[in-house]
Design a protein around this nucleic acid. Structure first.
Lengths: 237, 237
DNA sequence: GATCGTCTGTTTATGCGGTAAACAGCCGGG
DNA sequence: CCCGGCTGTTTACCGCATAAACAGACGATC
């Protein structure tokens, strides 16, 4: 009973967990249920993983590796730091949107070291970012600053974007018959409600990314670096 | 047995929950333990709250209300929109740092309506922000855009800042004897490690806030709004 | 002032979740 | 052919959220 169909395996389990979460949500994930999902008895999972926490860590790792493992993303051979950061940002956004139920986990799981920040969680990824930036002429300090700024940009945007998808970033999921309070006491809210409920995530993301890149470009020693596309409104500060 | 010492009460429970989380962490919070913390039998809490989820919601609400209820913050009578946004941002940061164990909850709890974004979770607060912005001459669309940009800025920065405090944004808290992997394979990381582990949160926050405000100012019809100046350090932190 | 309904905390009980421990079938090597 | 080690299964324990039955104390009503 060890053929490719039934045989368990750490990787098979982790992948199943990702699919399970994608399909049924994080709060539904249970060792026993995941076992059943794999046609197996729950306790069986402990032969391959030390426990639930380790499973969640592995899920995060697996999802993040989707990013660094994807050669289509071109992270390996970027055309300059701008290109690199753009690919990185878009790649992470793609992941967040592909696994909206998993992303909050990526975002909030405790980090191995204080400087390993979500959502860029892999040493490999951080190393690569720092390498690209310093090679491009940024000082060590600036490279670190870019890493920090980039992290919080991504975390903020992506977490909000996936949670707008109605994801259970927390618990429950009652239909809540009265989701929208009575807005009569809030005239501005009532008036702007159409604007607020419109989805601008993609455009906001791009714009914030461009702004960030412009800001980063200003750190560079001298020249604003040729490749940098001139965004119409970058005259700030 | 209903005197001020022993008598329960929704508010007393919620406040105790906040203190409990501050002291022992979110993952330690249990209905029974919170009961014990209040000198009571766990099930007693259900007389005042429908369940654990409701308790967590109330905790979030209570913490967020700290912000809007604090008159020292001057949110009621701001000197222009820049001042308002600065007070708001600093106020929220103060809260995040005061309750680092609670903040991830504020950040990730499902929103009542899709346009109620963490960490600005109260209708009152959103109304107030929109009101200030539109009164200052921003179009409805721009006011909504500012709200969105502000949310993700705050979420990203504050979530990262509290999680850097070693907070259990997720589960476990094993000391993990080997927290830092061997960095030999990551030269850039090894070289930049001192820069990365340095704490720049406050400065980064201020700088990103200033950048955001500058960017917002550019939305304004004509004049870049005179009041714009380097932050003279409000009462906060 | 006795009666009673209500409000609040307690006890008891159910079902689920994580996980330890004992167990059983199958493998490949001696 | 037997045996030790994998891998999955059973059993079992304990903590949790929560429903339900219970009990004491209060204030209002008569």
């Amino acid at each position: 009973m060890r053929n490719s169909e039934t045989g368990l395996d750490r990787q098979r389990i982790v992948r199943a967990a990702v699919r399970f979460i994608d399909e049924r949500g994080l709060r539904e994930l249970t060792m026993r249920r995941l076992g059943a999902y794999l046609g197996v008895e729950g306790m069986a999972l402990y032969r391959h993983l030390p426990g639930r926490e380790a499973l969640l860590d592995a899920v995060v790792e697996s999802v993040v590796d989707e990013l660094y493992g994807d050669p289509d993303l071109g992270l390996e051979a970027p055309a300059g730091w701008v290109d690199y950061l753009q690919r990185l940002a878009h790649g992470l956004r793609r992941i967040a949107l592909a696994h909206p139920e998993v992303f909050p986990l990526v975002a909030t799981r405790p980090a191995a070291a204080p400087w390993v920040r979500p959502p860029l969680r892999s040493l490999r990824g951080i190393e690569s970012l720092l390498q690209v930036m310093t090679s491009a002429g940024f000082s060590d300090e600036d490279a670190a600053a870019v890493y920090r700024a980039f992290s919080s940009f991504l975390l903020g945007h992506l977490l909000l974007e996936v949670s707008a998808l109605g994801v259970e970033t927390g618990p429950v999921e009652e239909p809540e018959v009265a989701p929208v309070h009575d807005l009569s006491a809030y005239p501005a809210l009532r008036r702007l409600e159409p604007h607020l409920s419109q989805d601008h995530s993609a455009a906001d993301f791009e714009e914030a990314l461009e702004t960030l890149l412009d800001r980063v470009a200003l750190m560079l020693p001298a020249r604003p670096r040729g490749g940098r596309r001139a965004v119409p409104r970058n005259g700030d500060q």
